[in-house]
């Protein structure tokens, strides 16, 4: 049986803008993925613990409040602590260009800014299968 790719879509921090997260979740669903959605206002700890229990292949973080530089790297750090850093983490939201390389250094595999075509996000996740 074909392996199903599972992706966690999460909203870290206090930001309540969930338009993008929901649109991406639907696009991934329509591309045949299993998408776990956390809802709003998640701490990095909740996100990582959820990712482990759900055994996801990837995490997509959405944050439009500007808190990404604190919250995104924290998720990667906690994954490392749990030995789950083979989960691919990407992020989206209002991320200034100059933050992108810093996020990549911190272990965020991709940053999807406003206007990113959904098919790019889908293609990115098709390659996100974790090794078992």
């Amino acid at each position: 049986m074909e392996r199903k790719i599972r992706v966690l879509i999460a909203k870290p921090g206090l930001d309540g803008h969930d338009r993008g997260a929901k649109v991406v979740a639907r696009a991934l669903r329509d591309a045949g993925f299993e998408v776990i959605y956390t809802g709003l206002h998640q701490t990095p700890e909740q996100i990582v613990s959820t990712a482990v229990q759900e055994d996801v292949d990837a995490i997509g973080l959405s944050c439009l409040s500007g808190a990404h530089m604190t919250l995104f790297p924290r998720v990667v750090e906690l994954l490392r602590e749990r030995g789950a850093d083979d989960i691919i983490v990407s992020g989206g939201g209002i991320v200034p260009e100059e933050d992108v390389p810093k996020l990549k250094t911190a272990g965020i595999a991709a940053v999807f800014g406003p206007g990113t075509p959904l098919k790019d996000i889908v293609e990115f996740h098709k390659k996100a299968l974790r090794k078992r």
Binding site: G13, G66, A67, L71
Partner: peptide, 10 residues
């Protein structure tokens, strides 16, 4: 503690 990372951001 819930405000971590959000100070003065938006």
């Amino acid at each position: 503690p819930r405000a971590v990372g959000e100070f003065g951001k938006c």
